[in-house]
Design a protein around this nucleic acid. Structure first.
Lengths: 217, 217
DNA sequence: GTATTCGTGGATACATCGTACGGTAGCGAG
DNA sequence: CTCGCTACCGTACGATGTATCCACGAATAC
């Protein structure tokens, strides 16, 4: 059975997609590939490197986004591709931003993002670009993390109100009944469940508007 | 030796501050407290609940921020307190946003944030408030995560240019020399190392400006 | 042909982890 | 005194990442 980093990563991704990072182990990957666990060490230094490799493989998909002549269109496309990738591979949201992402595909995504953002009004030099990239990337990392967490919570507590009430609701209801969290209570009780993709897009636009409305520095 | 959730959490926090989450185990906490590992299960259901408890303890500190009459001052204070907490407890940045944070202190922080943000111009109803909270929290989660990651990278590769060159530099230099990442190369080579706190504040202001400049919906 | 070396691959082992489970000791109530 | 409950710990198990060693087959040298 010929092995390769690509093959190991693809298997790891498949297993992580199904079982999450907690359910992913080198032994399980090896078993799935039909080899002994120590074989993997011919290709990756340790588990951590394997995780980095998996992250870069996901970045390869994000990097396929078309470059547009208009900077904002490109940024929106990259951000949405990142979100889509995170929703397809939820473990990605747990890893994103937790390590420097320096694989070739991650660098390609970084390059496409930076090149587009350097065209944005308000971004007049390299310091501006660094700050703008920081704001955008921070938002994306946080937004996908929160969205995946919310999906997981919904999945584990049930997808309808009755299951929520049975699982998490009693505690939360009790807390909200203390009267100590009136705004949160209003959000929970009265808040509509906003469409996740629209929320992401809306808030991404908010961040980009903030970036482009900055006074020149 | 009388135990309590508070005592267990405080010990866990101390150990995680020193050794990171990877170096934190229930056995080590128990040993530090001078009890058997199974004792901990009288107080926490499992390791996951202990982590949630630790996060809520950190939120207690963030919740101590003074409420101001001016919404933006309050938001800035909460955001900066969150960043400060994450820098003091780097493991916090790995957990933030990865689970619903429903402990009493996290709810208190959420309440203070939501109450202040509901006063912001541009936030006219509960849908606006939900979106604005989403944007702000996403930014904070992502920004502290990235900043802690950068600190860890700097620490592990050395704090000066020479150590960086010896450790990560050869790979990155080789990649940048391919010419495939010209904007990234410019950022790495020419980019000043911006002050982290100023960057956080700048980008936080950027996000808030975006939130308050939105057209009414 | 035989002996030696090298490369590939797997088996075994170790330390560690979270947690299940069972047993014991001490204390308080009846 | 006995019994029940609580606190506590010891033992055990399955699982994990990874170190280390050994066996086997193929290639090379003589």
């Amino acid at each position: 059975m010929p092995l390769s980093r690509e093959k190991i990563a693809a298997t790891a991704i498949r297993l992580a997609d199904t079982h999450g990072l907690d359910g992913l182990s080198l032994r399980k990957i090896a078993k799935e590939l039909g080899v002994g666990p120590m074989r993997l060490y011919d290709y990756v230094i340790n588990r951590s490197e394997l995780l980095d490799l998996m992250v870069d493989v996901v970045h390869a998909r994000i990097a396929e986004v078309d470059q547009h002549s208009e900077w904002r269109t490109t940024i929106l496309a990259i951000a949405h591709a990142t979100r889509a990738a995170a929703l397809d591979h939820e473990w990605f949201s747990d890893l994103l931003g937790g390590r420097p992402h320096l694989g070739p595909h991650a660098l390609a995504v970084g390059e496409a993002t930076a090149a587009a953002l350097s065209q944005a009004p308000g971004v007049r030099g390299i310091d501006d670009l660094q700050r703008a990239l920081g704001a955008l990337n921070a938002f994306i990392i946080g937004a996908v993390r929160r969205e995946v967490t919310e999906r997981r919570t919904t999945r584990s507590t049930g997808t309808d109100e009755a299951a929520f009430q049975a699982s998490l609701g009693p505690y939360l209801t009790r807390m909200l009944n203390t009267g100590r969290y009136p705004t949160v209570a209003r959000l929970v009780i009265d808040g509509a469940h906003l469409n996740a993709e629209e929320t992401f897009n809306h808030n991404l636009t908010t961040v980009l508007d903030g970036i482009t409305s900055r006074p020149r520095t």
